[in-house]
Design a protein around this nucleic acid. Sequence first.
RNA 1: GCCCGCGUAGCUCAGUUUGGAUAGAGCAGCUCCCUUCUAAGGAGAAGGUCGAGGGUUCAAAUCCCUCCGUGGGCACCA
Length: 562
Amino acid sequence: MLEEEVVKALKQADVEAFVSELEAPAEAKYGDVAYPCFKLARQTGKSPNELAKEITEKIRIPEKSSLASAEVVGGYVNFFFDWEKLAGKVLQDALEKHYGRAEKIKKEKIMVEFSQPNPVHPMHVGHARTTFLGESLSNILELQGHKVFRTNYMNDVGLQVAKLVTAYNLWGKGKEPKGKPDFWLWQYYVKFHEESKSNPELEQQAHENLKKFELEKDKAISKIWKQITKWCIQGFEETYKKVGIKFDEYFFESEFRDDGKKLVDKLLKNNFAHKTDDGAIVADLEKFGIPSTVILRSDGTGLYITSDLGLTAHKFSKYKLNKSIWVVSSQQNLNFKQLFKLLELLGYSWYKNCFHVSFEHVVLPEGKMSSREGRAVMLDEVIEALTKSALKEVKKRDKKLSEEKAKEIAEKIAIGALKYSVVRIEPNDQIVFDWNQMLSFTGNTGPYLQYAHTRCAGILERSGNFLQEFSVDKISSEEKNLLKQIMMFPNVISQSAKEMKPHIVCNYLYELATIFNNFYESVPVLKSEGSMKNFRLTLVQATKNVLRIGLNLIGVEAPDKM
RNA sequence: GCCCGCGUAGCUCAGUUUGGAUAGAGCAGCUCCCUUCUAAGGAGAAGGUCGAGGGUUCAAAUCCCUCCGUGGGCACCA
């Protein structure tokens, strides 16, 4: 909106400019919006600086405009906003409960599938990435005004479950989990891989069990199978509860395999796939520039992609989705390409509304994690260490706090630190898990943002009731910087939603917190007086609201005290 | 071999889609600031051949080409 005013002002100075050509100046002192004259200089043969001067001289800022002035620096025409005039509108907006909601977009039904832990071992820090990224993306889309379905998908029929079932039958039959069930079952999973090194028959047994379960629908195997996955999911739910994550729906692969097989048949009938000599069915994708892939095993059992065909069709028909998003690691980039191509070949027009949000792995300093070899840092373990460490810090700061209250705050800090540390990284970057960094509560961390929020809360608590004030005669640079950052929030949200990259919100919030801390250090609020005081209090309120909304977007709670 | 991601300060990362002003943070180390709205904070100094080499451009971390390093994928794992 302000950019449009700049474009208008330029037009009156005989310059045809577009909003997209405008830039944010490198430093605040240069102004609020810049128009670089280099391109035009080239066209007209003038020097950029000369041209910038000419343009600036011609510019007449209208009386009621939100622009204050224009200045020349080098080859730039720098515009300054009239912040005294703008402040009111910015503050009004920022105090809204759902500040950041997109106004002019089509509201869609969007399904976000994320987390998808294998029900054979506990979630490790690698799962944290899909889980927190998915949650955050969901929150962002929801804030924008979309209807979001958060779903989790359990691969409860794969070979890996067959392996666990085989192991349980051999070494744990009849036993019930002791402690957290996903951890308890993990031992059997690890043992299976250990033993199968010297005993290749185990692999065969697992395949046999898979056939019994999937094709023969063997009752005895099914019972154990279901029990085991149920136990594992119970373990997951405990973890989800700790990190405050809820799903609208769980999908189970076992329920979509048969649907998928029907679609495999259809692909075969329509000559998009062929049967090999040994009976496997292969989708022919080479002519589309994609490697071909097996979509049904020669023994008749399905694969991951088989079920996903069925499930995706189900998603779109049952929920009438406009979009379906999968938050899954980059390891499966090719598989999603293949899946989406197959859906296209099946004639589903919605195939173009399928999006794979890919991210790189979390690795340990010593290399890749391996759950089957028992070498992984588990999510519960990290949460526990963080909570313990946070509790120590909380108690150090406020010795009068009750144990219960201290624990409550420590948990918020721990989860905040965890989620922020994961979500803030650009998804295409690999994350190297580092305990020291994970346990840090200073600098660019979740607690830093939470702390800025508590500072706001502290001021407002001490101030008591006050009259909101939206205008002020003279604004300081610290106040201006804050307003400017607050004003950008909706743009940041829509960019983050458009690119499906929650880390953009993290970066924004870190900047907001830094700018606020700056304001906090140099602008007295409670010690100021009259309307100035009320204006600053209103500004603090607005900042607090944006921090709260933003933190919640990444699944982090904003405490008033810490 | 082919396809995809990544390579920016000692370490961990923003910035690259849409080329612009002296390349930004945090951590670690150094110097300061708590009788002041909570120091989980702030100020300052130091730290960079933006993997390498070419090219395009008035202007390249950003675009193009080649190469190197690294992680992942490439038919019955998921």
